[in-house]
Amino acid sequence: MFKSITSWLAATSAAMVLMPLSLPASAQSYLESEEVALVFCAYVRDNHTVRLQRKLRDMRIRLRDVYSNIRCNDATLIQFAVKNDAHDIGSFIARSVHIDDIRQVGDFEWMRERNLLETPIGEILARRFQP
C-alpha cells in the first residue's frame, strides 16, 4: 500500500511541475491556437488526412469553423497543401470547407492565377465554383 501511495504522489507532483505557469486566458488561448495551427500545418505538409480528421474530432471542432484563421507560412491550408503536393489532404479540405470561406481567403483565385485548376485540388474547387 505504501508503494502505491508513493507512486501516486510522485505522479501527482510530476504533473504539477509540468503544468504551465498561470497566464491570462487570452494568452493561453493564443498559445493553444498557435499550437493547434502548427499541428494542422504539419498534418497538411505530411498529407495525413486521417490524423487531421482525428485531431478535429478529438478537439470537437469542424475544419470549416477554423479554416479562415489558420495560416502555414503565410498560406491557407489549401495553398499549403498545393505547395507541398499533399493532394489527398488538400482535396479533403477543399471538399470540407464552406465555399464562402474559400472565396473569402482567395484560394480559388490563387489557384486560377497560377494555372493550378487541373490539379486534383483545383478540380474540386473548380467543380464547387461552377454556377
Rank of each mutant, 00 (worst) to 15 (best):
R71K: 14
V50I: 09
D46A: 11
F80A: 10
A81M: 10
R54C: 10
M59S: 15
K55R: 13
I61P: 11
H48P: 01
V66K: 06
Y43F: 13
R54D: 15
S68G: 01
R71N: 08
R45T: 06
V66M: 07
L77W: 00
D65W: 02
Y67C: 01
Y67G: 02
S68M: 04
D85I: 01
L56D: 12
A81T: 09
R51G: 10
R57H: 14
T76A: 07
N84W: 02
N69S: 10
Y43C: 08
Y67S: 05
V44T: 07
I61H: 11
R54K: 15
D74W: 05
L56R: 08
L77F: 00
R54G: 06
V44W: 01
R60H: 15
S68T: 08
T76P: 08
Q53H: 10
N47Y: 00
V66F: 04
H48S: 12
I61A: 14
L63V: 05
I61V: 15
R51H: 13
D46R: 09
R45C: 00
I70A: 03
Y67T: 03
Q53W: 03
R60E: 14
Y67K: 03
D46L: 10
V82C: 04
R64V: 06
D58K: 13
V50R: 12
R45N: 02
R51W: 08
Q79H: 06
R64M: 04
C72A: 03
Y43I: 00
T49D: 01
Q53M: 14
K83G: 08
L52C: 04
V50L: 12
D74F: 10
V50N: 12
R60V: 06
R51C: 09
Q79R: 11
L63M: 14
V44H: 00
N73G: 09
R64N: 09
N84S: 09
